[in-house]
Nucleic acid binder design. Sequence first.
DNA 1: CATAGCCTATCGATCGATCGATAGAGGCCT
DNA 2: AGGCCTCTATCGATCGATCGATAGGCTATG
Lengths: 218, 218
Amino acid sequence: MSRPPQPDGRVRAAAVALFAAKGFHGTGIRELADAAGLSSATLYHYMGTKEDLLVDIMQTSLDRLLTAAGQVLTESPSPVAAMNGLVQTHVVAHALRRSETLVVDTELRALSPERRRPIVALRDEYEDLWESVIEKGQAAGTFQVPDPSVARLALLQMCSGVANWYTSGGRHALAEVAETHAHLSLAMLGAAPDPGLPPAGHYIRLVTGVWGDDATAG
Amino acid sequence: MSRPPQPDGRVRAAAVALFAAKGFHGTGIRELADAAGLSSATLYHYMGTKEDLLVDIMQTSLDRLLTAAGQVLTESPSPVAAMNGLVQTHVVAHALRRSETLVVDTELRALSPERRRPIVALRDEYEDLWESVIEKGQAAGTFQVPDPSVARLALLQMCSGVANWYTSGGRHALAEVAETHAHLSLAMLGAAPDPGLPPAGHYIRLVTGVWGDDATAG
DNA sequence: CATAGCCTATCGATCGATCGATAGAGGCCT
DNA sequence: AGGCCTCTATCGATCGATCGATAGGCTATG
């Protein structure tokens, strides 16, 4: 997790870290340049506007989340397996890539309406995957919830929230957090426990595979 | 919900709405003055600095949340009743006072360390109330969760998340949202359903009582 | 010598905050 | 009643600082 050698990667990494810590509007161009080890003018050699940079970060993050979710759904034979996989993948991504997922979740309001629209479309596409899994489970009688759409919203808020409190050196190990969230989610949906589901290690590998070993971590 | 007649109330209301919609750093002094119907100079007759205003908003909101939670715990005879009450009160407050709770949840990072500390202390005090209820239920065998502290974090994220998506004219009625969240929460904790718990109306009255009919709504 | 990478210097705009001034309401002394 | 003082509420103008972004030039590599 050392600082990436290429300047464009350093700019991205610095932006992700600063936007997550201080917010988009709370981060200045000179501050960003300092963190990337460049002058504020050179910054513009590697990016468009500050908003372009934010859009790019969100785009990349959501693309990867969609890719990971697609793989989960392909390999999951049942709604319970799919939900277990979606939750664990989401939680692992939000823990290992805290900063970039936080930026996606909190800085949508910083985008102009035109730039926001395609990002929101990606987010909706991702959330629709969750919705359809809940509906399939509900239709099959595996899940019993009073209101599937409220359940979807509650579930996603709970899992995304991991990015707000998880720390890699903290009290809770990653696998424990992921599996606990999967357990809580399935309990919430009224599903019976299933010991045959893949453990956290499987989804940790999936997430690190999709995200690659590049350097926008945090 | 009309615009409060007193200028200081208008400043507060405008700040809550703007900070929630565009963020603290995304809201300018002149913009705030326009929304309150004052000049930017007159603004400073009713507040200290912009940061003072933010601190004041957070302080008030957390005080009320603590007051409401205290009342819930006083009147609840069991961990299940207490958790039902905490969840419903929290959800109702986050739905009826979306903007101010969003500001509390997302703008902590905008505060300087010295100003942040007492606010975080209030938040921790509130979260400890939840923690102890979960632990009591766990000790009594009413709740069964793999990890009480992860459960507390997951629960709070889920319930606070209501402020991110609830709209008063939307698809979901307030009472339905509150009761659904209580149901999901108790299912998450492994508690058996209990039809004898107070319905949402009780907690809606509690919240509107604590918040009063003043005009910082939204 | 062309290009990529990077700089200093600078732009106009806007930031949060303060200035001195004014209008009006209410009290108080004579 | 009239004159005077104080306090609140408000303003336009402006402060120094910082904002995001650009212009133009230097250096090194191919």
